[in-house]
Amino acid sequence: MEYISERIRTAEQGIISAKEAAENDTKSSAGDKYETTREMMQHEISFNQVQLHEARKLKYALSLINPSRKCTVAETGSLVYTDIGNFFIAVSATPLSIDGVSYHVISSASPVAKAMQNHKENDVVIFNGKRISIKSII
């Protein structure tokens, strides 16, 4: 949630900064330069609006996960411990480390999550020609 909240803040700040830059340039420019700057700032606002929308969608998707629910198969909201690493199936985000344990934070739509989907502890799945042994699922 911290990661997504930071993405939301960054996008919101980007929109504010672009609007301020366009306003400031309007006061001091005329002609083609004004139009070019205004177009660039509109592009920047649009880009940040898309980023903001995507971050809000991620936040909503993450809010649907019940962290106290015990998962018995690899699915959205589960922690999957494997012989190649640990995965939190939720949303696509940067890897994180908790108490010295590293986790890949992946979307349920990612290829590796799809390969593990509905498998349980001690199952072996094949992903990109590699065997992945599922040690445990929480």
Rank of each mutant, 00 (worst) to 15 (best):
E2H: 05
D99F: 09
S97C: 12
K19I: 08
Q117L: 08
L62G: 02
G100R: 14
L62M: 04
V50N: 05
N24M: 05
M40R: 10
E39W: 10
I84H: 04
R131E: 15
S5C: 03
I138L: 08
P111H: 00
I98P: 09
I132Q: 01
V105P: 10
L58D: 15
S28G: 10
T82N: 09
L64D: 07
K33T: 13
L96R: 08
M40H: 06
M41S: 12
M116T: 03
N24Y: 10
G77R: 01
F47M: 08
A55Y: 02
L79W: 14
Q42C: 02
N24K: 12
K19H: 07
H104K: 14
L62D: 05
S29Q: 09
Y60D: 12
E2R: 09
I89F: 05
I4Q: 01
I84T: 06
S133V: 07
I15C: 03
S107W: 02
I15L: 06
E35Y: 10
V105L: 14
S136Q: 11
I89H: 01
N86E: 06
R69G: 04
T10L: 08
V125I: 13
A11L: 03
I65K: 02
K130L: 15
Q42E: 13
K135W: 03
I16P: 08
M41A: 07
K59S: 13
G77P: 01
S29C: 06
F127A: 01
K19E: 06
K130Q: 12
G14T: 05
S46C: 09
R9A: 08
K70G: 09
A93N: 09
K27H: 10
E35N: 14
I137G: 00
K114C: 00
I126T: 11
A93G: 05
R9F: 11
S17L: 05
E12P: 01
E23I: 08
E54Y: 05
T26L: 11
S68Y: 12
R38C: 12
V91H: 01
K57W: 00
G31M: 00
R38W: 04
M1D: 12
C71Y: 14
S133Y: 12
I98A: 07
E121A: 04
G85E: 03
D83K: 07
R131W: 02
Q42N: 11
F88L: 06
E44Q: 04
